[in-house]
Design a protein around this nucleic acid. Sequence first.
DNA 1: GTTAGCACTCGTCGCGCTAGAGTGCTAACC
DNA 2: GGTTAGCACTCTAGCGCGACGAGTGCTAAC
Lengths: 354, 354
Amino acid sequence: MARRKDRPGPLEPRSEAILRAIIEEYVATAQPVGSMTLVTKYRLGVSPATVRNVMAELEAAGYLGHPHTSAGRQPTDAGYRLYVESIADAATLAPVEQLMIRHQFGQVEFASEQWFRLAASTLAGATHAAGIATPAKPQSCRVRRVDLVSNGTRTASLVLVLAEGPVKQVLMTVETDDEPADLEAVGRRLNARLAGRSAVEVESWLAELRDALPPADSLLVRAVERISRLMHDFDAAGVEDVFSEGLLNVMEAPEFARSEKLRRVFSVLQDRNYLGELFQRLSREGDVHAFIGSENDHEEMHDVSLVLAVYGRMGRATGVVGVLGPTRMAYAQVISTVRYVSGLMNELVDHLYA
Amino acid sequence: MARRKDRPGPLEPRSEAILRAIIEEYVATAQPVGSMTLVTKYRLGVSPATVRNVMAELEAAGYLGHPHTSAGRQPTDAGYRLYVESIADAATLAPVEQLMIRHQFGQVEFASEQWFRLAASTLAGATHAAGIATPAKPQSCRVRRVDLVSNGTRTASLVLVLAEGPVKQVLMTVETDDEPADLEAVGRRLNARLAGRSAVEVESWLAELRDALPPADSLLVRAVERISRLMHDFDAAGVEDVFSEGLLNVMEAPEFARSEKLRRVFSVLQDRNYLGELFQRLSREGDVHAFIGSENDHEEMHDVSLVLAVYGRMGRATGVVGVLGPTRMAYAQVISTVRYVSGLMNELVDHLYA
DNA sequence: GTTAGCACTCGTCGCGCTAGAGTGCTAACC
DNA sequence: GGTTAGCACTCTAGCGCGACGAGTGCTAAC
């Protein structure tokens, strides 16, 4: 069988086995792996010298590197990538773990906001990395109900329940001569006119109202203004909330013993734009997707990997769940866990928006 | 003037000035401070030898320490404590900073949840440490309004607006033969009976209903059950949410260059019990209060200080704002900023719950 | 194609050394 | 009596050095 030394291509089974062994050993120990430890621990049936030859090939192909001449090998991002491709399809979660996760989901209060937190913390616990989850966000929202209730002190709360679940609340100032009864009347009118309406429809009614009612400060108009703005913001927002849990787990990895690298990761994570962009790239792909080290756009994220999956139904409500951890993570475990949890979230969304 | 070498007591003005200078220098540089640098930088009008004598006294009194014989001095927690006592009353924020903060508060949407985030991030920005804020939580809550709206798929959303502002939302399963009209009827009945009621009152109505209506699965009963539970949980919860912002700032401090210490701090911070207990201790004290290093109960928090203040009106709604940072923090700046921000939050609460 | 043998490389660890910072003490000074 | 100059002393950080060991790459034999 011809060897392809220079061009990356399908590897021989033995080379692949060795790459796999190196990755698994490196993931477990965080130390460069030598030829000797490989043959003793992994029963490869060949001598260290042979392994060394193969390792040299793998290095030439870009799958391995070593920090200095006399050190063992460690996988490159390309090596991880190859490994991930080879296991991605097969990876299913052990039934025991499935049961444990399902059990955790059974425990939680039947309130939607809890699920994302739960998904994040479940992922964090099961993978010993950071769990990430966003709420299922619909493409565009509709009004389900509006409430306008007096606070007693020249302010009133406007509570907007969206058909897709989320509840928005803002304060409004009211005139002293607006009686609670007035508020209720306006509330009834709002509900009658707006229930089931989309942002665009609210906006067009607002335009009508403005034309019809010259006194621009009318309570009704101002309420519709606020509602319109809320709905517009909701539709425009890329990623509204990102729950992350278990960032502590990432801190425990030896590669982040000095907090400098970690700080840079956190600072990227903090601004939601990064995750927002990432999620948009994701929404076209179907299954679990891994972004390994330098595959991440930002310089700062080159030492971490993200394993993400979209859940929900395209065109309707979708969200993202996933895991962030050091590049040296147990991909088989992480990918299968993310896949399983996103499946669970799918069930929940189906059940809710069916 | 008699010196009190052994007993800690009121210090001579010169000693206090030197302590202050050491603390300010140490806060700025994070390096142990020597006698020489002190006299050159702080124009003390005495020679290094004299400063050394005073430093020896201060060390004997427990206000200073040095990491090893030939190193400069650094303040102990007791030293910081003395310093804080001496500046605490006087500390007011520079007008420029006041203006900047006030301006930030002016920018935000008029929605209560935003304020806590804003307070936390303002504090973080102004002090280069982590900002912490909790929502203003009333002692006990009352119902303002209940909405029961169908989701279409055997589930309904129960939206509970509390008189104090917060909105709670849970999902309920409904029977297939519960028409939307039924939901609305139940909703009207709930509002008529529960508006303005407290958790206890809801509970007693629930008991009545259970006696009166044998079929325990009636939609009304189940709704009241959920409401009762939500309100009870709300009243029982010590600290419902803690927003913290700018933990990155803390990571930048050189004392946390190795992430181990930081990890332990974060892990304590993560479980809300710790902050909950702390906040309860706080609620008796009036003004800004500092917990310096080892004054914190947990071993893990011995390298950080918390500067906290209660805002709101006792007996009505109260919350906490504050700052977490390394023990070596600029207390004058931090204390005055926390005091100012808590004052702003007071205004907001007054305006809202007046 | 595989393997044993071996020279070579390079990072880690422990050691001793030096330079420098800063102290504490003593004796002189005002 | 408080203050100060002078000085010996202490301790750390930093550097160079050599021993050690892990691991490689190459070569020649199987």
